[in-house]
């Protein structure tokens, strides 16, 4: 039973990668390489790399605590089997970061991670989204991307304000700009995954109007979100105003590109090669001049089908 469960989990991961349009072996090697490089940089170049990795491991473990998933497991097997599975899967997920801690001889972090992963496995509690009390959001009900996004990422947003405060305390403008970039990235992430097709189909609009409506609201509400941080940075780090403006401008461009990218393949998820193209344009922005009209035309084509335009 337990063996079959893990075989299934393995098969699921392989299928996810295949559906994403990548070769599972290639993707696994690429992820491994990125992890090795990333964790090495974190542990050698930053002061709190170990703590960041600990948080990363928690972010991998928490999705496994989703109530529906655990209810399903508990209802389909004995409690002993359930706890075994939970402990084993948490341990498997923690292994990569445990190895990093071992290499860097971070014994306290090793014990902390082992303890946390076991507690999370045994303790029947959920970090799922099934709270009945809605988290308030600062804007009206429109657009849903921001209502949903803010409720999912409010901790990141609060984190960015903490970073901003630290930047102010230690007089580090780069950290302040980083907090702003974090906010911009958060806003961009609201448009990362395509919504159910019904949420586009239901619009009484044509493709062009729909797309501009989405982009207009995205820019407007993103501006509201980054406004306090931007103003704060302009007041306290005036010398960085130009860099700040450049980053904000680039952030808006990428926000629009991501919207175009999402609708270019709508209602399907964005295939990896397209995502990589946008990722590459981060390092070579002139590529955007070609990507924007390309994604725009594709978006209009996809939306015309859904909206019967």
């Amino acid at each position: 039973m337990i063996k079959y469960y893990f075989q299934l989990q393995f098969t699921r991961q392989v299928r996810k990668l295949r559906d994403f349009g990548v070769n599972p072996i290639f993707a696994s090697l690429a992820i491994l390489a990125l992890f090795v490089i990333g964790s090495n940089v974190l542990m050698t170049k930053t002061e709190f790399g170990g703590h960041i990795l600990l948080i990363v491991s928690m972010s991998w473990l928490f999705p496994l605590t989703i109530k529906k998933r655990n209810d399903f497991l508990k209802s389909s097997m004995s409690l002993i089997q359930y706890f075994r599975i939970r402990i084993i899967e948490n341990t498997i997920i923690s292994i990569p970061i445990l190895i990093v801690f071992l290499v860097f001889q971070e014994w306290i972090l090793i014990i902390t991670l082992l303890l946390l992963s076991t507690i999370i496995a045994i303790r029947v509690f959920s970090f799922s989204s099934n709270y009945t009390f809605p988290i308030p959001r600062p804007f009206s009900e429109f657009p849903f991307e921001f209502s949903v996004g803010l409720r999912k990422t409010y901790l990141v947003i609060l984190g960015s304000y903490v970073l901003l405060f630290i930047a102010f305390k230690v007089g580090n403008p780069n950290l302040g700009i980083f907090s702003l970039l974090l906010l911009l990235l958060t806003c961009i992430s609201f448009y990362g995954i395509p919504e159910n097709e019904i949420y586009v189909w239901v619009y009484k609009s044509n493709a062009k109007k729909f797309l501009f409506h989405k982009m207009k609201f995205a820019v407007f509400f993103s501006s509201l979100i980054i406004a306090p941080t931007s103003i704060f940075l302009l007041i306290f780090f005036k010398a960085q105003a130009l860099i700040l403006a450049a980053f904000i401008g680039l952030g808006y461009v990428f926000l629009l590109v991501v919207i175009l990218l999402k609708y270019s393949t709508f209602p399907r998820e964005v295939p990896l090669p397209k995502g990589l193209l946008v990722g590459f344009s981060l390092f070579f922005p002139p590529l955007l001049l070609a990507l924007i009209p390309y994604f725009y035309n594709q978006s209009i084509r996809s939306l015309k089908i859904i909206l019967h335009d």
Binding site: F142, S147, V148, E195, Y199, V202
Partner: peptide, 16 residues
């Protein structure tokens, strides 16, 4: 969608 209240869903459907 997750994180959408019933009221917000109704408003969205009407506004669309």
């Amino acid at each position: 969608m997750t994180k959408i209240t019933g009221l917000e869903y109704l408003k969205f459907m009407c506004q669309a």
